[in-house]
Write a protein that binds this DNA or RNA. Structure first.
Lengths: 341, 341
DNA sequence: ATGAAAGCGCTAACAG
DNA sequence: CTGTTAGCGCTTTCAT
């Protein structure tokens, strides 16, 4: 076990003071009028012995950890995994590390996570919040902590946020289905009450209203297990034989829906047309290919990191809140195209 | 901005010493013969004001951070995302947090990541290492840091590891294809040189040898972009029209393969049979459903965390290395079943 | 049973 | 231009 080199060791070796070394290392040589020659000498030696300051001590002293806490709904979900991957990459480029955790939409767990992040003194928070953490997030924001919400908003909390205009996406998708001649378009969603889900539902409702049609909505309980969700959709399809198109509010519901449809032996799009929220390999490659409302993940990640870093580094812009709403894009594929027999 | 409560504050308020509070908080009241009554009083007050010790200070003092560094190849890949999710969950249950990063198989990036983790004093490491970090990982192990490798081994490095017997998986899959009557089974893999890939290839080679058949292997350069990989597979299929079955060594190659097959207008399994490594929604739902060699992810995660915690907490078992090799399971679906016309 | 005090390693204000 | 020094908040030994 090799002995850790300390700042003291390097100061001793070079016969200068600890302060000098610290100043040089933190780029404050100039403003403290330390000679270039000396600064150079310090840097060279530090490099030579591979000295790395103890970040814990540094953080304890400065109060900055250069760690960002990232809270997503489920890291195993392709949407969140992709966004998390992009955020990680971009944060790393700017010198920040990520600690992430999944909430699984569990309010209590999220609360705990938020507490942990505070204990660990993360510099900033990126959160896709479940309902019920308005208090905690609100407190964070009030205390001036850099926070960026994404994917969904928290009613009653004014915080930085990067979301997608789900209503625009679903209304466009619904109109697309109706214009293809499908007449009974159902909307399958989750009863989580989260803002992005409400928005998506509103977009559907509005388009149906425009066409003078009544809504046909299945709301699945978000606490159900996979198999139970498939069952619900299965039952719904059997109970509504006239339904000839379904718009799913989120990626995993579509996956369950495909499963249910396949069990019923229905053909897509002949018997039933499909549109999903979120794109993925599965939807691109499924046979038939699935029409989706795709979220601009790269742009989202850029905005999230951009907003967070501004809050993190631009201490002057106090009390300024940035909210960004990005447009999704409808990628029309085979699953929603009317086939003439 | 509410003032942070310190241990000093609570000691002052209760009119006891800081040490007493600290001892009680760390469950060392008994062994220091602190009266139950006092201990109780401290706990109650701490609870009341919601005091949380500063983890940075604590870590600086104790040298433990209760953070595990997790390095995967790509968090956006469903295999790694799922394993990461499971590891996170299990670690959390045991009081550990996860910092994760993706390597994208970049040796230099991984080196940096490892350095960062050391600077941040993570308590343990879980790594799916790219080749080229044998030095760094070896140094970690020699210095007694708890390390668990997974998915692949590092040649020449004796470290704890949890891997899957890929050779068993691919040989079984190859035999399955051959016994179905497919005669020209190709193996599509990546030239990364990683042990898991070598193992998978060996399993294929062995099964082919058993049947007295010669190998047909496509090795795609692991640095290529998605579209280029698809192109390679596309070319390969055109150049080998007699090939009637393909075994893909990893999930994303299969996805690219499906893309290439679909562009060529080939039917599965009539024109070409398919088996993939790794299971996913896509393979379960694809039409036809895709036969896969599934890795036992839950068991892997259990073993990884179990091994790491043993190394972390059982300081006595010095120098003990645990290597676990888990069996995969062949899930036979439609894509590899011979259809009689 | 309890308190005083010595650090963990680093930063930065201040005094030369 | 450089050195001294006072902490950041906590743990833990040792003396009482």
């Amino acid at each position: 076990m090799k002995k850790k080199t300390l700042i003291r060791d390097i100061a001793q070796h070079l016969d200068v003071s600890i302060a000098t070394v610290s100043l040089v290392l933190n780029g404050k040589a100039k403003e403290n009028r330390i000679s270039d020659a000396l600064a150079e000498k310090v840097l060279t030696y530090v490099e030579e012995v591979g000295y790395k300051p103890n970040q814990l001590a540094k953080s304890l002293r400065t109060g900055k950890t250069h760690v960002i806490g990232l809270i997503v709904e489920d890291i195993a979900n392709s949407f969140f995994a992709t966004v998390a991957g992009l955020i990680e990459k971009k944060a790393l480029e700017r010198g920040y590390r990520i600690i992430y955790c999944s909430t699984n939409n569990d309010t209590a767990k999220t609360s705990d996570l938020l507490t942990m992040f505070q204990e660990r003194h993360v510099d900033g928070y990126v959160v896709a919040p479940p309902n019920g953490v308005e208090e905690e997030i609100g407190a964070l924001v009030r205390n001036g902590k850099p926070v960026v919400l994404f994917d969904r908003l928290l009613p009653g909390v004014l915080a930085n946020a990067v979301v997608v205009d789900g209503a625009a996406g679903t209304s466009q998708a619904t109109r697309h289905l109706l214009s293809q001649g499908f007449s009974s378009v159902a909307f399958v969603t989750i009863n989580s009450g989260q803002t992005q889900m409400l928005g998506r539902r509103q977009g559907y409702a509005q388009a149906m209203r425009e066409y003078g049609l009544s809504e046909l909505v299945l709301e699945v309980d978000f606490l159900l297990e996979r198999e139970q969700m498939i069952q619900r959709i299965h039952e719904f399809l059997r109970a509504n034989p006239l339904c000839d198109a379904i718009l799913f509010s989120t990626n995993y519901l579509s996956v369950y829906g495909l499963e249910a449809i396949s069990r019923l032996g229905l053909r897509i799009p002949e018997d039933i047309a499909i549109v999903s929220f979120d794109d993925s390999d599965l939807f691109r490659l499924y046979s038939p290919t699935i029409t989706v409302i795709a979220q601009p993940m790269e742009v989202m990640a850029d905005n999230i990191i951009g907003t967070l870093l501004t809050a993190l580094e631009g201490g002057d812009e106090k009390g300024r809140t940035t909210q960004v709403q990005l447009p999704p894009s409808l990628l029309i594929r085979q699953s929603s195209i009317r086939r003439v027999h």
